[in-house]
Each structure stands twice: as structure tokens, then as C-alpha cells.
């Protein structure tokens, strides 16, 4: 596979390490009353998507950036690649606004 890195262009997927569902960006609030449940769900509950899936990849043999990649699990077609840092920042701003 090839991944179209937002800063570096097309790179072989062999340079990357796969983590999983991009839902891992939404780490729950540890101080909330239901933290135990929300962390359990955050860590263990995943949708097993047949189709478009947003997932985390790490460019370990490259610029060390974490990426959020939208990949079709049926065809491997990649339709979006974002820097996870940007996505995480937007999530924060969304949560704060």
C-alpha cells in the first residue's frame, strides 16, 4: 500500500506502523463519575467496519508523525490522510467551544 503523507507525499506503507481505530484520539475525562466505564469503552469497544474506516498510523521510518487515515477496509482505497495532531487540536477546540 501507499500512503499519501500530507507533508511528504506518497510513501510505502512499510514505513508505517498501524495502531487502529482513530477513536483512540477521544480519551475520556478521567475525573468524570463514570470514568471507569468510559475508559473501558474507549479502550476495548471497536466497530469492525466493512468500508470506510478512520484509523491511526505512525510514520516510524519517516517523520515520526501520527496520521489519521481514512481507508476502505474492503478495497484498501485511502481517501483522506490527516496529521493526527491537527485532528486532535480540532477535537480540543471543538470540545472547548
Amino acid at each position: 500500500m501507499l500512503i499519501d503523507h500530507p507533508l511528504l507525499g506518497l510513501r510505502d506503507a512499510a514505513e508505517f506502523v498501524y495502531l487502529g481505530d482513530a477513536a483512540l484520539l477521544n480519551r475520556p475525562d478521567a475525573s468524570s463519575a463514570d470514568a471507569l466505564d468510559s475508559f473501558h469503552d474507549y479502550l476495548h469497544l471497536r466497530d469492525n467496519v466493512a468500508g470506510e474506516h478512520r484509523e491511526l498510523w505512525y510514520h516510524e521510518q519517516g517523520d515520526r508523525s501520527w496520521l489519521v487515515i481514512t481507508r476502505n477496509t474492503l478495497t484498501h482505497a485511502i481517501t483522506a490522510v490527516e496529521l493526527a495532531r491537527d485532528v486532535a487540536m480540532n477535537l480540543r477546540e471543538g470540545a472547548n467551544s
Binding site: 495502531l19 483512540l24 484520539l25 480519551r27 491511526l56 505512525y58 508523525s65 501520527w66 496529521l83 493526527a84 495532531r85 486532535a88 487540536m89 480540543r92
Partner: peptide, 8 residues
């Protein structure tokens, strides 16, 4: 991961 994804 912690630096970029959790506490950017």
C-alpha cells in the same frame, strides 16, 4: 502518540 494525539 501521547504527545501528538492526546495532548497536542
Amino acid at each position: 502518540f501521547c504527545r501528538q494525539c492526546l495532548w497536542p
